[in-house]
Write a protein that binds this DNA or RNA. Sequence first.
DNA 1: AAAATTAGTTGTAATTGTCCACCATCCGGA
DNA 2: TCCGGATGGTGGACAATTACAACTAATTTT
Lengths: 163, 163
Amino acid sequence: MNGPDVSTATRVDHVDLDVLENVLSFYIRVIDTKVSRDLDQRLANLEVAKGKGKITALLLIDSHPGIRPSVVADLAARDRSAMGRILDTLEQQGLITRQTNAEDSRAQELYITPKGAALAVKVREIVVQQSEDFFDRIIPQDEQKILIDILKRAYRRLQEAGK
Amino acid sequence: MNGPDVSTATRVDHVDLDVLENVLSFYIRVIDTKVSRDLDQRLANLEVAKGKGKITALLLIDSHPGIRPSVVADLAARDRSAMGRILDTLEQQGLITRQTNAEDSRAQELYITPKGAALAVKVREIVVQQSEDFFDRIIPQDEQKILIDILKRAYRRLQEAGK
DNA sequence: AAAATTAGTTGTAATTGTCCACCATCCGGA
DNA sequence: TCCGGATGGTGGACAATTACAACTAATTTT
């Protein structure tokens, strides 16, 4: 009598999501939560489990020898201190090394180690495969292409906006 | 000579993202990170800042009086213990109340308080507005509609898949 | 009536994220 | 040349999330 839905919901089916029903950020958030959880499980054995910051860093350093921490941080959408700590652990695990840039001694150059490169090979496979597997279950292939296309441009605009 | 990109990257522009370039989960993750950060700032003054679990819970309880914690947890993609703690804080803040279900004394019924309802009004406005503002900067309107459409169905399938 | 499920709580540990201060270095202008 | 401001990175503190697992209580199944 007093609310829009008195039938105390006990099932998830067709529960109205209030305004969130049409809020893009809500869906992005939930899907990210689930896909990340799924990915973490698949990476559980490897040294980069938990959080995709490590993965992004590892792959970027592998494909861009000498890349700077601040660039990696921007691309992965983390602040410098957070990324710094991620790099600390990668370094401790012997996956990367840090060198001081000869021209600008404030800056660092990040390099992959053989161990890190070997791991990157595995990670690449898993990450690609997992994203495919996960989304194939819930989004038709043709729509996935549309998604990637839209989100890729959105990502670029975000980077530009970040100055 | 040993790497694909020896020009030690110092700029974010056009840095190749390795395989992540075409990995849907990567874009979802980064965009979620940024949109969530932006939202948190806009909610900074309100009692539900930090993390959208609280927001989802508040709005759902407001529009579904008597909804169960486990249902809220599923819809927001958190496990029961995590949602339980979110509800603890909402209860401590006087935004919701918990009652034991008469028919199943294991289960709880969640209800909004007047204070919670008042907050929900504000939160609704902000959340909707923020998502619009944020995405309007980076995705054309017509593509946003496509996105919502695709992601909404993906979300539903995820819910079904979760049993 | 026993066994298996379900709802929710609690504890712990690891990660993250944020904010801020701090140091060293570099750069531009007076 | 020297000074102020900006940049790159580090480190501390603190709050919040997250996952996992163990645990109680209640319900349902067999």
